[in-house]
Amino acid sequence: MKKTEVCLTVNGVTHHLGLSPNALLLNVLRDELGLTGAKYGCGTGQCGLCTVLVNGRAVLSCLTLAVAVDGADIVTVEGLSRPDGSLDPIQEAFLDHGAIQCGYCTPAMVITAKDLLNRNAHPTEPEIREQIEGTLCRCTGYLSIVRAIKSCGDRAGAPAPRPSPMKKSR
């Protein structure tokens, strides 16, 4: 199959790649560039584990043709931490709120959260839940992830306390 040159700037580094039209962005990132943070989970756009930022917007890389994003600026989870190794606040929040279990959805969750926080510095819980509804996690039940994202908006340095005793009845 004819290969075309595709230019992708990934985490600040520009790559010129010869790619077939049927190359999916997810596989290019993983197989050509060795960035395995974005994961295959279903391939049909249902689980969100392949989420990356394309020109600042969270998209599904398993349903994105690499040729279609020629010239785009792409950020994967590997690009969130700074060159000195220091982490993005959302990554710190995931660490502080026990929002990580097996870790397989974590890169996508972090990117999905980043997309929200870029637009909305103080999201409400419903906004957070709506944002991550398309990124599936089988381990956590989502609550710790929601708390982590919320804490970034709250700009709380310290971990939020565990759930406070609820209202007694309604």
């Binding site: 199959m1 004819k2 075309t4 077939s20 039209p21 049927n22 190359a23 999916l24 596989n27 295959y40 279903c42 391939g43 049909t44 398993c62 043709l65 040729v67 279609a68």
Partner: peptide, 15 residues
């Protein structure tokens, strides 16, 4: 069927 890749080959244009 393989949802990890696009098996079929095709031409691509973005006019």
């Amino acid at each position: 069927m393989n949802t990890r890749i696009l098996k079929a080959e095709f031409d691509y244009f973005a006019p």
